[in-house]
């Protein structure tokens, strides 16, 4: 999958959180772009991957300082949009699935109402039309009894179903880019793959772009086209998923080496080595070229 059509272009993104103990530079000079493809962002906790996702939607807390040469979505510069214009982007063009449906769904509204709301916000639709679309969308995320689930409250559904509801809610206005921020980390291993399969199918069917944020390198490499590897707020490297095992970057190698393998022997797993020198090296611009 080659960049036939640029969806998103990020150039020299910096995110700073001011704090009394000094500024925290959460993201430093990162650049990447994506088309209608699946791109994974992998990194440890605090590497800046979630913050990067949220900055695209401009939904960081108001005290966060975002600066970039460019964050353009379909040619529109997101940083220069007004809050009102930005609301037309959110949900309608770019939306986001978060980690734990237990917290990301409103506890006192029915599932159906919450999904319908996402539709009504962007379409001039009556409640009845929104309901019909919601039921169809629930079916699309493979919920067998949508009429019944429509009336449930979030505490009455399981984690896996909650996340499917979340996906339905985020896809119902038909956005062209979905940011999935650790969408399976809070789920049981057994349902993780189900949810991933649904996400994968829907994204491919609809020809959307996907940014998949995760700390699970193996999962991302089996699922995405390209992988961005982040460390300390910086992009370490960008690799094609197929070439992941050929990567030579010491950090990527470190991440790969600390994973256990079934066919491997019983030798001790290596611990992750971190080198602050990587942070100063300039990986920002050139390495994003994609072969193939």
């Amino acid at each position: 999958m080659i960049l036939e059509e640029q969806l998103l272009q990020v150039k020299n993104l910096n995110i700073i959180f001011p704090s009394p103990k000094g500024d925290v530079h959460a993201v430093k000079n990162i650049s990447f772009s994506l088309g209608k493809e699946k791109i994974g962002i992998v990194g440890e906790s605090g590497s800046g991957k979630s913050v990067t996702g949220r900055s695209i939607l401009r939904l960081l807390p108001p005290y966060a300082k975002i600066s970039a040469d460019k964050i353009s979505f379909k040619g529109q510069d997101l940083l220069s949009l007004s809050e009102k214009q930005m609301r037309k982007i959110r949900g309608r063009e770019v939306s986001m699935v978060m980690q734990d449906p237990k917290y990301s769904l409103n506890p006192v509204r029915t599932v159906g109402k919450q999904i319908s709301e996402a539709y009504i916000v962007h379409r001039k639709a009556t409640k009845q039309e929104a309901k019909e679309h919601t039921l169809k969308m629930l079916e699309a995320v493979r919920i067998r009894n949508p009429e019944q689930v429509y009336r449930l409250y979030p505490h009455e559904v399981s984690g896996g179903m909650g996340q499917r509801i979340m996906i339905a809610m985020m896809l119902i206005p038909d956005p062209s880019l979905l940011i999935a921020d650790e969408p399976t980390s809070a789920l049981d291993v057994t349902v993780q793959l189900q949810v991933l399969a649904i996400l994968d199918d829907l994204v491919s069917q609809r020809g959307m772009g996907l940014i998949f944020i995760s700390h699970d390198l193996e999962l991302v490499s089996s699922f995405c086209d390209r992988i961005i590897i982040m460390y300390g707020g910086r992009i370490m490297e960008v690799v094609n998923a197929a070439d992941l095992h050929k990567s030579t970057h010491p950090y990527t190698r470190g991440l790969l080496n600390c994973l256990p393998r079934i066919e491997g022997g019983n030798e001790r797993l290596s611990t992750l080595v971190r080198d602050d020198a990587w942070l100063d090296a300039d990986f920002s611009a050139p390495s994003v070229t994609v072969s193939g």
Binding site: K88, M98, S104
Partner: peptide, 23 residues
């Protein structure tokens, strides 16, 4: 986090505050 969800959906800020949060 459901407040963030509502904002991601593109819900107007006054609805997020007076509808979702106050609700």
């Amino acid at each position: 986090e459901y407040i963030l969800t509502a904002r991601v959906k593109g819900v107007a800020e006054w609805k997020v505050i007076w509808g979702h949060a106050l609700g």
